[in-house]
Amino acid sequence: MDSPNNSCLHFTSFFLVGIPGLEHLHIWISIPFFTIYLSAIIGNYTIVLIIVTEASLHQPMYIFFILLGFVDLILANAAMPKLLDIFWFQFKEIDYHACLLQMFFVHASSTIESGIFLAMAYDRYVAICNPLRYSVTVTTSVILMSGLLAVLRGVFYILPLPLLLRRFHLYSSNVILHSYCEHMAVVRLACADVSFNDHLGMAIGFMVLVMDLALIVTSYALILQALLRLTAEARLKAFGTCISHICAILCFYTPILSSSLVHRFGTNVPHQTHILLANVYLLVPPLLNPLVYGIRTKQIRERVRTFFS
């Protein structure tokens, strides 16, 4: 460890606090966290397994469910095992490079999932606004290409964050007041000008959250316009195909937007509230996505019932 002055040091590992200010409640907080985490793992694994093994579900629309399942599994496993280590065994130390790797997978998974939801919004737009060309426009190869683009975009957006952090060698502390290696929580510890990292993080957040959500809202505005031209019965039937996607979007974007707004503007909000909200968006989408699509999709619902019986 090099020590050029009394405040800035070179560290090879960090220490994650968990939920700051609630350390005495960690063992109790771990109960709902572990329950949600385990349910998310089982739910997503079940959905993926059923779609892969059931030949009747090998259709383009179900590929989106597989992609979401894999991304949710990565998102849930990126931070929760380490957090449970902190809750149960007080294993707070994390290697510097492992911290950067965790940072990449957490933020990249969220970015990829947002891209998948955007592609699903386009799928619903074509299905309702141009149904005669749906089978030609939305093919398996198109969906796979959309998934690949979502992955590449997530890697392209997020990879610079940990790479740029590697240029910082001195930190004011190696104690991260967070439950995982969140980008800005690590950046604030660096003994250097971090304005570029801060602005880059905000720019990426804007491009992912605001632009993706704006495009999704635009697609549904066009869908609503098309629905108004249909009969009441046809309108209800067509809208029923969008309910699952709308629910999943709300489950995904609401926790992220709440966490981002509180993080940026909630100066009077207790720090532990920030951390709890940051963990909500790692757990809620992986938990609710398989429930939403499993309950709303008749073929999956019947296959799940058969699978468990």
Rank of each mutant, 00 (worst) to 15 (best):
Y157S: 04
I256L: 15
L276S: 08
S195R: 14
W88L: 06
L49T: 11
H271Q: 11
H26Q: 06
S39I: 02
M80N: 10
T137W: 00
C251L: 13
F65I: 07
L144W: 13
L209D: 14
Y45W: 09
A232T: 12
A98S: 12
Q225E: 11
N268C: 10
P4Y: 13
A127V: 06
G294E: 06
Q272E: 07
Y122P: 00
Q225W: 06
P255C: 08
L291S: 10
M202E: 09
F252Y: 13
T35P: 04
A232D: 14
F33I: 14
P160Q: 10
R133F: 06
V155R: 08
P162Q: 01
I41N: 10
G154N: 02
G18L: 01
I116G: 04
F91M: 05
V292Y: 07
S195A: 14
P131H: 02
F239V: 01
L213E: 10
H245G: 02
Y125F: 10
K82C: 07
R153L: 11
G43L: 00
P20A: 08
Y180W: 14
L222P: 00
T267I: 11
Y180N: 05
S3H: 10
Q102G: 14
I63H: 09
V217L: 11
S195K: 15
T306C: 11
Y157I: 01
A238E: 09
R229N: 08
V138G: 03
F33R: 00
C8W: 06
L236N: 12
S141F: 13
I275F: 00
V208D: 12
S244D: 03
L209H: 12
A76H: 04
T12C: 04
P162T: 04
L83M: 10
K298G: 09
V17I: 09
N197H: 09
Y37W: 06
A214H: 05
E113R: 14
A150E: 07
Q225F: 12
T111H: 03
S13C: 03
L287Q: 00
N130L: 07
H26V: 05
M211Q: 12
L144I: 07
S259Y: 06
L165K: 04
R167P: 00
I41D: 07
G43A: 05
N268K: 06
H245Y: 12
K92V: 03
V186M: 11
P60K: 05
F70A: 10
L149F: 15
S179D: 13
L22I: 04
K82E: 08
I29V: 04
Q90L: 04
Y62D: 10
H58Y: 11
C247A: 15
S7P: 01
L291M: 13
I41F: 02
A226Q: 14
E54R: 09
R235C: 09
P60M: 06
L73V: 02
V48Q: 02
Q272G: 00
I176Q: 02
N77H: 11
L163M: 09
E182A: 12
A121Y: 03
V48F: 14
A79M: 13
S135M: 07
L287F: 02
F33Y: 03
Q90V: 00
S13G: 03
L9R: 15
L132M: 10
V262Y: 01
E302G: 03
L83Y: 05
R305P: 00
H245Q: 11
I63L: 12
D123L: 01
Y157T: 07
P81V: 04
M1Q: 10
V151N: 07
S219C: 10
H58T: 05
L170Q: 12
L288N: 05
F15K: 14
A150V: 03
C251R: 00
N279I: 07
V284T: 12
